[in-house]
Design a protein around this nucleic acid. Structure first.
Length: 417
RNA sequence: GCCCCCAUCGUCUAGUGGCCUAGGACGCCGCCCUUUCAAGGCGGUAACGGGGAUUCGAACUCCCCUGGGGGCACCA
């Protein structure tokens, strides 16, 4: 990578996932001389040649050629270096190159399908493939693990490194691609490929790492929640799947929820706090960490991402609850709502403000009106929290306090009549 | 157009000739539990793309077809 911010992006994503590395990064931009020397060597040995053909000339000549690509026109012209000239690698005319891949087995490429490809541009800079071959060779790379999209360029890399004096091939493993719902390779333009964005969307690094590891691979016993140590221990390239895998956010949600539930409460509170302090729907002075801490265990069990946390607790920090209209419709649909609210208000005005008592009194209210608690609690929940779903009601009421709760109940009652 | 890869439930996968009336997980649908929702429990829906061949026997081996994807630049 040539741009420093792109390098940083890769490194910080790796760090976020808890993946480390032993050396580097090595920058190809700092090794240009090495590549140029390699090209010169190939030139000297007749394994490469100068070519001054323009794209137009090549196209015109090869228009109805049976073989694809460059036609080798300059192959024997004995050209010298020139302004607009490139260096092309002389590929063998017959035979084949076999790529031995741990995941895919032997992949054969007939040499007559390989054109004499460019290795040095007219400005003297090296093409990626040459740089790659030189680096792998010079750095003693033993294993090349990459996406399947690079499989077709492998024979060219192999030919180059052999021409450069290599007497053995590295071990290759071409991993299946991760694809979108249309089964296309993920792209920056249309897909969410920036790993760290998942952090901003409330996903935990260990969960993302865990999920990613399960794409194209599975442990022998079918477990799905695995620590890094287990991953490191059990992962085998040999057992990686060949078919591309769809990135299923639903499954990530599930795994993320598992990780959230498994955290100590204190950790959950710490992790969730940024979502409550930054960009919240309430003024920052309205946020009360102690209140959140008290309700946190209930929220932790119910949330799939950290980003969902605010909407579960907003009623505690908002002046008035954000009434969800769909929820309100349900309350109106319950004919007993107004009497329930009246009765509840009366009970709540005098009873001890404690979850068990609230529970018992509310149940009694429901009973008086022939409603089970699961029905009777609905108007109260919507009046107080604005939603039909949320943390357990009586814990929520206790934390909200008598005055604020009553105020909301009265407000809802007024709106009903 | 040429080259290459791939093909089991909607999705991620297990499966390497008989253990498969194909297993698990996510999702979805019921039921139970239950102060909502989750979680949990129980149950259900749902797949070997098609055709040949080999074999006593194919999800598993081979061939063809079909379908999907990737790669083919003086990008990396």
């Amino acid at each position: 990578r040539s741009r420093e911010d792109l390098v940083d992006g890769i490194l910080s994503a790796l760090r976020w996932l808890g993946l480390d590395w032993d050396e580097g990064p090595v920058r190809q931009s700092e090794r240009l001389d090495l590549y140029r020397a390699a090209a010169q060597r190939l030139l000297d040995e007749g394994r490469a040649y100068w070519c001054d053909c323009t794209r137009e000339l090549i196209d015109a000549r090869t228009k109805d050629n049976p073989k694809p690509g460059y036609d080798g026109y300059c192959s024997d012209r004995g050209l010298e270096a020139g302004e607009a000239s490139v260096v092309r690698f002389r590929t063998p005319d017959d035979g084949e190159t076999v790529v031995h891949d741990v995941i895919r087995g032997e992949v054969h490429f007939a040499h007559d399908t390989l054109e004499d490809f460019v290795i040095l541009r007219s400005d003297g800079t090296s093409v990626f493939l040459l740089a790659n071959a030189v680096d792998d060779l010079e750095m003693g790379i033993t294993h090349v693990v990459r996406g399947e999209d690079l499989l077709s360029s492998t024979p060219r890399a192999l030919l180059l490194r052999r021409a450069l004096g290599a007497d053995d091939d590295p071990v290759f493993a071409h991993l299946p691609m991760i694809v979108n719902e249309k089964r296309q390779k993920l792209s920056k333009r249309r897909d969410d490929v920036a790993l760290e964005e998942y952090r901003e969307r409330g996903y935990l690094a260990p969960a993302v790492r865990n999920y990613l590891a399960l794409l194209g691979w599975a442990p022998a016993d079918g477990r799905e929640i695995l620590t890094v140590e287990e991953l490191v221990d059990e992962f085998e390239l040999e057992h990686v799947t060949k078919a591309s895998a769809f990135f299923d956010i639903k499954k990530l949600d599930h795994i993320n929820a598992e990780y959230i539930r498994a955290m100590p409460v204190a950790t959950f509170v710490r992790e969730a706090t940024p979502w409550l302090e930054l960009d919240a729907a309430w003024p920052s002075e309205a946020y009360d960490p102690a209140l959140f801490e008290a309700i946190a265990p209930e929220v932790q069990q119910r949330v799939r991402t950290l980003a969902e946390v605010p909407k579960w607790v907003d009623f505690l920090f908002l002046d008035a609850p954000a009434i969800d209209e769909a929820a309100w419709e349900k309350v109106i649909g319950l004919p007993a709502s107004s009497v329930i609210l009246d009765d509840t208000i009366a009970e709540y005005e005098t009873c001890a403000w404690q979850r068990d008592v609230l529970h018992e009194r509310t149940a009694a209210v429901g009973e008086r009106h022939g409603l089970k608690l699961n029905k009777a609690q609905l108007p109260i929940r919507v009046a107080v929290t604005g939603r039909t779903v949320g943390p357990p009601l009586f814990e929520s009421l206790e934390l909200l306090g008598r005055e604020r709760s009553l105020e909301r109940l009265r407000g809802a009652r007024k709106r009903l009549s």
